[in-house]
Design a binder for these strands. Structure first.
Lengths: 240, 240
DNA sequence: CGCCTCATTGACCTAGTTCAATTTGGGTGG
DNA sequence: CCACCCAAATTGAACTAGGTCAATGAGGCG
């Protein structure tokens, strides 16, 4: 099923009825593909549909007047890359493909119908945009307060948790197609320093890398090093 | 009227009917006060009401395991400090009073009723939480990519725009009760460096300070210096 | 085979930190 | 009204995490 990974993510926290699943599924329209570097959602343009990422890695980013780029979130399969375009109508940033990506479209029109039909789904979707905001806040702490090595480690921990939910991890490893340049833009470091920092992490046996895969031999050790606490991801199941 | 500043903010972008205003107003319950430093909303505790700030300055912040504090947003009158506690149920950060604060409570229960009665208000409230997320993203760019002086200038520009909406500015100045320590936590700098940077801004006649007021003699000049673009605040009116 | 992007390494540089000592100024009690 | 107090701001000197610049290596692919 095309929205499989989305369901994995939502069901991590909420139970969904068949009707709710059907309502969501039937609201999706066509799919689209983007090559690495392609623009999935442009900055400051009116948008009338949301894109649900079903394959590949993407990111939100902004560029300053001086040409410096900051990545603000990594999107993975099961994530709406721009659900917030529904209330906002246009985005303050752009969303671009990191690896080759595939998305399905959910027109705002149809989203309105979903919300009219199910207040509960409305709240679940709202929730899901609020987790993005929580991730932004954690990144603020990460970039603002942690040193380079822990900062990188923290991001790797976050990706481990999020990818696990959508069943994109092995025991102790996951695919991770970001270049050191992408990491630099995510961590507010230079790519040169990212290289050094990853070397340090490798030296401490906290992580290793083999062709676009991150391997984490001792998760607890890495989390301790990074000062990582997964609560900000809101993965705990709740009653409703 | 108690929700006056909230209405100023919402009406900047949306027109509101009398019924909508009445629905909001009648959903508010008691008020509460907090002295400077008080906890308006605690981290990681179940919450069953939202707090609308009606007087004073507050902030969202988190502390790392090493005891470093990062402020993630400054809240001003008219802002819900924790509207996102409705979908999230508990907060990943705390909200504390910077100056003496007064809030009104909006119980989640009542908020549910508002949403049931008005899909439009639901979307407007969702929108308002998404602007917070947009502010987080801009802060990521600010902290991640800009040098200390522009970073500070950028924050002062943001506050000017936001305070103007709720009519808390003079021609070229506004009250701003943050200490240099608070600024340091907001900008991911040390307070020592904040002191030096503000001196630099003063020296360049970009801002001046007189008893807890920020004075901006030439707004355009300050914005140019900071590389500030107000679009991320979503202040433009929209159709609906 | 040769190109092109990505990663690595070394040498040097600097923005911002750290530490520590003053200074300033608003608030309070006598 | 003055003296005192305490938090906040300022300043200087020494230090360092991370940046900059530039050269080299290494893989993937047409």
């Amino acid at each position: 099923m095309i929205i499989e990974k989305l369901l994995l993510k939502l069901r991590e926290r909420y139970s969904l009825t068949e009707q709710e699943v059907e309502l969501l599924t039937s609201s999706m329209t066509e799919t689209a593909e983007f090559g690495s570097g392609g623009t999935i959602a442009p900055q400051y343009e009116k948008i009338n549909f949301c894109s649900l990422l079903i394959d590949g890695f993407a990111c939100r980013s902004k560029v300053t007047v001086d040409g410096d780029r900051q990545i603000m979130e990594i999107s993975i399969p099961g994530d709406f890359v721009d659900l917030h375009s529904y209330p906002l109508e246009q985005l303050d940033h752009s969303v671009t493909a990191i690896s080759d990506c595939r998305i399905v479209k959910l027109p705002h029109q149809r989203l309105s119908e979903v919300i009219d039909k199910s207040t509960r789904l409305a709240r679940i979707l709202w929730f899901s945009t609020m987790v993005d905001a929580s991730i932004h806040r954690e990144w603020l702490v990460n970039i603002g307060q942690r040193r380079a090595a822990q900062r990188a480690a923290h991001l790797l921990c976050e990706m481990l948790y999020r990818l696990r939910v959508v069943e994109m991890t092995d025991d102790d490893s996951y695919e991770f197609p970001l270049t050191q340049n992408d990491l630099a833009s995510s961590l507010a470091l230079t790519s040169v320093h990212v290289s050094r920092v990853l070397k340090e992490l490798r030296g401490k046996d906290l992580v290793s890398f083999r062709n676009k895969r991150v391997i984490i031999p001792d998760q607890e050790k890495l989390e301790r090093f990074a000062g990582f606490d997964p609560q900000f991801l809101y993965l705990e199941a709740r009653h409703g």
